[in-house]
């Protein structure tokens, strides 16, 4: 194996022995932080999410609990996993809340109706929500196996652009970028929502 490593590195040296270093022109729009959490950015986020067939609720902080209750009732979600750190004041009474402690097996997750999470950051231009397995988000399997995913996004977590998000994320954490519900374009290149990931994505955009 080390022989392979040595040889590949030698081949590379032989191939590019006289290559000059390359300058990278970064004239594109880089991270600016502009517009973060603004009404325009939240509007754009909402527009993009709806375009991906996510269900979006724009709510005031005081309404979060009631809107979650209504959304879950509407979807028939009776048992959902709630990651550690998800604000308990947002949890309505009614559904059974399951903790991931001890860690649930894949089969146990598959038996649940849904999952509730917060997020790390969101990107308005692309309608993307990023989870980094931090507080309120849980390990990656939690937001994957159940068929219904409700995410609470705070307005000031929404940045305008992809560069804004990349600049803020920690690459050593496991990251999941989510843009709408699971989808495929594999049949005649027409987009169909709903394959292996959660087929229903519900997003609460909390403003004010």
């Amino acid at each position: 194996m080390n022989a392979a490593r040595t040889e590949i590195l030698r081949r590379i040296d032989a191939a590019i022995s006289r290559s000059a270093p390359v300058e990278i022109p970064r004239t594109y729009r880089g991270p600016s932080g502009e517009g973060r959490g603004s009404a325009a950015v939240v509007d754009l986020m909402q527009d993009r999410l709806v375009d991906y067939k996510a269900v979006v609720h724009r709510v005031e902080p005081a309404q979060v609990r009631a809107v979650i209750a209504a959304a879950l009732a509407d979807a028939g979600v009776e048992r959902a996993v709630v990651p550690a750190g998800f604000p308990t004041e947002w949890l309505p009474s009614g559904p059974a809340w399951v903790q991931d402690d001890p860690a649930l097996t894949a089969a146990e997750l598959d038996d649940l109706d849904g999952v509730l999470t917060t997020c790390r950051i969101a990107v308005a231009e692309t309608g993307t929500i990023v989870l980094d397995a931090g507080q309120g988000q849980g390990r990656r399997a939690l937001s994957l196996v159940p068929d219904y995913h409700l995410v609470v996004v705070l307005a000031d977590q929404i940045v305008a652009s992809v560069p804004d998000a990349v600049a803020e994320l920690d690459p050593t954490r496991p990251l999941t970028w989510i843009s709408g519900p699971s989808a495929t374009s594999d049949i005649e290149l027409q987009r169909v929502e709903g394959v292996h990931g959660p087929r229903r994505l519900v997003v609460l955009l909390v403003t004010g």
Binding site: R48, A133, R139, A141, R173, P174, T176, W177, S179
Partner: peptide, 21 residues
Amino acid sequence: STGERMNPYTSMWTGVTPGDG
């Protein structure tokens, strides 16, 4: 590639994360 602003899922990982994956 798919003509989308962003594809539905992108996963990023660095080595092994204890307890996750």
